[in-house]
């Protein structure tokens, strides 16, 4: 999938900005400094590749928070 082409992804880290844990079905994206991820663009890139993005994670005051991905329109 073309996540590495998203403008907020730092393609110089990991493997073109993406680290995949196949067993856990977990994808880690490296972000450019100061950039925030765009969940809609991520969900579309994942959907275009034929997969389903389920949720993404953030740390807030030391706690892990989960965020469901929006369902891309087809």
């Amino acid at each position: 999938m073309k996540l590495s082409k998203l403008k907020f992804v730092d393609s110089k880290r990991y493997k073109r900005g993406v680290d995949m844990d196949v067993k856990m079905q977990l994808l880690t994206l490296a972000l450019r400094p100061g950039q925030k991820p765009d969940s809609k663009l991520i969900a579309k890139a994942v959907d275009d590749a034929g997969y389903v993005a389920v949720e993404w994670y953030t740390m807030d005051t030391g706690k892990l928070k989960t965020h469901p991905f929006p369902v891309p329109k087809r």
Partner: peptide, 18 residues
């Protein structure tokens, strides 16, 4: 403010594999 991103990482879970 949401101290969202883990030091420049964005972690997401998805279904599927090639």
């Amino acid at each position: 403010m949401n101290r969202a991103i883990l030091q420049g990482l964005c972690v997401l879970q998805l279904l599927g594999s090639p």
